[in-house]
């Protein structure tokens, strides 16, 4: 594919990236800058976590990087494709063919079986997926005996594992996961996170995960920290304690983040 990036510098090996990304909601007094000049690349073959307190813009960053939302200024790329230049149909097809998604909840269509949910994107494309790959995915997520069940017959953790299999089924350039363990108990959550990490390390896939949970972020190869719509820090080889420490430092840096961090901590302690 020829480069459509124009003057933007090409970062080799980035599966997805944003350049000078800004997202503004409203105008005048009610203006909210959810993203305020963020530039970040998510390297291929790596598991990256996006962290930050509530309202830091982490979800907005993920939505814009994944082509679910559009930037007010700046550019978002999947590989060398600039998303802002695509119309709705091309963007949809790009999501279908080159991106995988795992959402916090409601990942599966209740009318389709587990197997059908896994192959949904390739089926929508009217293609046959790679049967051997999908077969190995099913083994990795451990759902071979549930293939013909409906989502309603599965536990929350099982449902998220199906979603993970679905996200990787089309061998996308990058999988975006938005708080994938937000609705799970810690054990199911650990299973899903382990699954994501293993898929990256053993099968060479790329994952970008949004989370507010330091324990979840610790599964990643690198953590990028967002606060008030800006990229404030990066951390390689994270552990839960180091991430929590870094997060605590947001307290005092901004009244807005401090307040939200409190609630984050409360939520953590209550679960």
């Amino acid at each position: 594919m020829t480069s459509a990036t124009g003057t933007a510098p090409v970062v080799t090996g980035a599966a997805a990236r944003v350049v000078d990304a800004a997202k503004v909601y409203g105008s005048g007094d009610t203006e909210v800058r959810a993203l305020d000049g963020v530039g970040v690349a998510f390297p291929a073959g790596q598991f990256t976590a996006i962290m930050g307190p509530s309202g830091s813009g982490k979800s907005t960053l993920m939505h814009c990087a994944a082509g679910l939302d559009t930037l007010t200024a700046g550019a978002a790329f999947i590989g060398d494709t600039e998303l802002g230049r695509l119309d709705d149909k091309r963007l949809t097809m790009l999501r279908r063919d080159r991106i995988g998604f795992v959402f916090q909840a409601f990942n599966l269509l209740p009318t389709l079986t587990v197997a059908e949910n896994i192959t949904l994107p390739t089926d929508l494309a009217g293609r046959r997926g790679d049967p051997a790959w999908i077969d190995s995915l099913i083994d990795v997520v451990g759902l071979r005996d549930r293939l013909h069940h409906r989502p309603a017959e599965l536990s929350g953790g099982q449902q998220q594992r199906v979603a993970v299999a679905r996200a990787f089924a089309g061998r996308p350039d990058v999988v975006f996961a938005d708080e994938p363990t937000g609705n799970l108990d810690s054990r199911s959550g650990a299973e899903v996170l382990g699954l994501l990490a293993d898929t990256v390390r053993e099968l060479g896939r790329t994952v970008v995960m949004v989370t507010h949970d330091p324990v979840a972020a610790a599964y990643a190869d690198e953590v990028v920290f967002l606060a008030d719509g800006r990229l404030v820090d990066r951390m390689a080889a994270p552990t839960a304690d180091r991430v929590l420490d870094r997060m605590q430092r947001f307290v005092g840096e901004s009244p807005r983040t401090a307040r939200s961090l409190d609630t984050t901590a409360e939520r953590k302690s209550s679960s």
Partner: peptide, 15 residues
């Protein structure tokens, strides 16, 4: 929400 999910994972408007 189902429709949103379908659109997110690649169902075009015409589909």
């Amino acid at each position: 929400r189902e429709l949103g999910l379908l659109r997110a994972v690649g169902q075009t408007r015409s589909q």
